[in-house]
Amino acid sequence: MTEMTALSTDGRAATAPAAKMSARNVTVFYGDKKAVDDVSIDVGPEHVTAFIGPSGCGKSTFLRTLNRMNDTIPSARVEGRIELDGEDIYASSMDVVQLRARVGMVFQKPNPFPKSIYENVAYGPRIHGLASGTAELDHIVERSLRRAGLWDEVKDRLSESGTALSGGQQQRLCIARAIAVDPEVILMDEPASALDPIATAKIEELIHELRGNYAIVIVTHNMQQAARVSQRTAFFHLGVLVEYGETTEIFTNPRETRTKDYITGRYG
């Protein structure tokens, strides 16, 4: 974490030297209802950022603005500016297909497609034409499953359905599916909240290993988890980004009383 000592811990305008994604004054509405209120934050490039906060405070909503998944909700409207490597992702010149290939996503509930394990991982590379032949596709599938720590468990049954795996394996399959297209950022929305403690530990271990290669943003309502896996933590409350800084700082010495109340379990 030495590379991060230079980072500012100021919640409002935390500007790191080379942020992977930066949001400025982002506000999200569902119809007339404001779900995210004027959030500015920088994430990446090479560390894990955790979003914490009581449920309903807009963590998922904000996370979904980062790969424009909110576009799929008709009532959602996003204001403000979000950049990926300095490029406005809401600009008309931005291709959503390309954006989502660069910013992958893992959901709360494991959602493998009802296809074989192999086809699940090969899905993205096929869509984006990343492999020129079966040998290359095989290679991508194997590499992704290895990175997701699933290869040894499934290498003999790649043609079995992905939905037949256990919950934890399914989630790692979804992570393998996301990294198969070589994204730059991976968004994870409570990826372990539907899993048992052992499967959760495996996911956390995996996040540790992936850290060097991808900027990871993880939403969690489990504060121990945030403390274990992240280097930086953002605390949201009622749609507002209350505090953002180094994880150790947030957990040992929060500046805001609301943050302190939340992490000491006073509400949420």
């Binding site: 799929t72 959901f107 959602n111 009802p114 869509i127 297209v181």
Partner: peptide, 27 residues
């Protein structure tokens, strides 16, 4: 077919029609 399937495919960068052809209809 759960919304999660659709989201999963869209989040991979698939278009709506790719999602329908490759995920929703097979499911």
């Amino acid at each position: 077919v759960p919304q999660a399937m659709r989201d999963g495919s869209l989040a991979m960068g698939a278009t709506t029609s790719e999602t329908i052809r490759k995920v929703l209809v097979p499911a």
